[in-house]
Each structure stands twice: as structure tokens, then as C-alpha cells.
């Protein structure tokens, strides 16, 4: 369960999130959408405790996020830009994260699925953006945790990997997990999202299912619905 209560976040003069509250009780896929700079990543980072809001409280599985850290045992996070220490190899990085989290993991299966075997002993600094994103995916999905936070998981992926990623997300969803996702690939939202949380100018402009969105805007497809929301 994730609860955000009256979250306000300002960066200097700029108010990114203005008194935002929402609650996610049950498992499912929740797409956080909004134009650039609408605070999508900020919301995700606030849930992770990486960004600290000026006001408001976040609860994850009934733990207050402020000043605690062990609730993160229940979260896997896929950051937007796959940046890793350059001089580590893929194998070392996976080993390190396993060592830090100290949980059962299934990295071999994922490595094979994404075709990463031949990159295992390469330094992360020498990998292409797409390959790094695959490593990112392995690190996120290798632990069995109830909450997944995915910030632009599709960045740089080829179509085959994109399909694999979709399958992965669907499996996790079927297992009853909470999946929070931001993406600009609307087809992904259409095929995966149970609910849409649409951010605009620091507020939640819309929250509901895809059906409710098209009903509200009177548009058939997601692209036009979102364009209608923005107008």
C-alpha cells in the first residue's frame, strides 16, 4: 500500500508538486503521466525517500517514509537514466546489489531472457544505452518485492526487448504487485495500465481507468484523450 498525504515539493521558486494526495491500496499497474517537468520522477523519488518534500507524509506499507529506510526492502526501483559506476562489470554490479539486499534473486533467468550473457564481463562504462537499460531491468526485476517503481523503463530498448519487458510487467502484475510506471510510450500504457494518474501543474489532474478517461474526454484513443486533458 502506498499513501501520499498532502505532498508539496518546491525546488527553489518552482513548485513541482502542490498538495498532492493519493492512495494505492491494491496491486495493479498505475501509470503516472504528465508533460515534461510535471513532477513524475519527483513523485517516484519522494516515495523512495530520495527527494524530501517540504510538506506532507508518505506511507509505504504503513511505514512513514521520512527518517526510515527499511521499507525500501519492499521496493525495486528502475531509475530513469541507467547510470552505474563505470569501472564495474555487469557481473560485479549484479553481485554487489545482491550482496547489499541480501535476498533470494533470479538474475540468471533475466540475463538469459534479455540476452545479456555476452556482456556479463564487460565494464558498464563500455555498454550502449540500450544494454545498460537491460542491466537496469535485471537489477529491478531480480528480487521478489511487492512494489515496483519503474521510471521510463522503455528508454533505449529494441522492439524485442520491449515485448519481453511487457511480459515481465504483466507477470508481476498477475502476482498482485503494485507497479508504478512513468512512460512516454502510450501503447505501453494502453496495454498495461489499470489506472492513470495524470499530473499537470503540480496537481493530479485526472485519476481513473482508461475507460473513465475516454469517457471524460470523449476521445477514443489515449493519445487524443491526453491531448484533450492538456488543452
Amino acid at each position: 500500500m502506498i499513501q501520499l498525504q498532502h505532498i508539496t515539493k518546491r525546488f527553489g521558486q518552482l513548485t513541482v508538486l502542490d498538495d498532492i494526495s493519493f492512495e494505492i491500496e491494491n496491486g495493479g499497474t498505475f501509470a503516472v503521466l504528465g508533460p515534461n517537468g510535471s513532477g513524475k520522477t519527483t513523485i517516484l523519488k519522494i516515495i523512495l525517500g530520495m527527494v524530501l518534500p517540504q510538506r506532507g507524509e508518505v506511507l509505504v506499507q504503513d511505514n512513514k517514509v521520512r527518517q526510515t529506510w527499511d521499507y525500501r526492502k519492499q521496493i525495486s526501483y528502475l531509475p530513469q537514466i541507467a547510470r552505474f559506476p563505470d569501472n564495474l562489470t555487469v557481473r560485479e554490479l549484479i553481485k554487489m546489489i545482491k550482496d547489499l539486499r541480501n535476498m533470494p534473486s533470479r538474475e540468471d533467468e533475466l540475463v538469459e531472457m534479455l540476452g545479456l550473457q555476452k556482456f556479463m564481463d564487460k565494464k558498464l562504462g563500455n555498454l550502449s544505452g540500450g544494454t545498460r537499460q537491460k542491466v537496469n531491468i535485471v537489477l529491478t526485476f531480480m528480487f521478489d518485492v511487492p512494489i515496483l517503481i519503474l521510471d521510463e523503463p522503455t528508454a533505449g530498448l529494441d522492439p524485442v526487448s520491449l515485448i519481453r519487458l511487457k511480459d515481465l510487467i504483466e507477470k508481476e502484475k498477475a502476482a498482485g504487485k503494485i507497479i508504478l510506471i512513468t512512460t512516454h510510450i502510450l501503447s505501453l500504457v494502453e496495454s498495461l495500465a489499470d489506472e492513470i494518474i495524470f499530473l499537470l501543474e503540480g496537481h493530479i489532474h485526472f485519476r481513473g481507468s482508461l475507460g473513465a478517461l475516454s469517457q471524460k474526454t470523449g476521445e477514443k484513443d489515449l493519445e487524443h484523450s491526453i491531448a484533450a486533458l492538456l488543452e
Binding site: D70, Y71, R72, P79, F84, P85, D86, L100, R101
Partner: peptide, 16 residues
């Protein structure tokens, strides 16, 4: 230089 490493660690269950 270790910003990436730090960010990676911050998302893990570790105290700041």
C-alpha cells in the same frame, strides 16, 4: 564521480 553509485545505493534499503 560516484554520483551514480550513490544514487543506486539510495534506492536500496540502506540508511543514508
Amino acid at each position: 564521480n560516484s554520483r551514480e553509485f550513490t544514487e543506486l545505493l539510495l534506492a536500496q534499503p540502506i540508511r543514508r
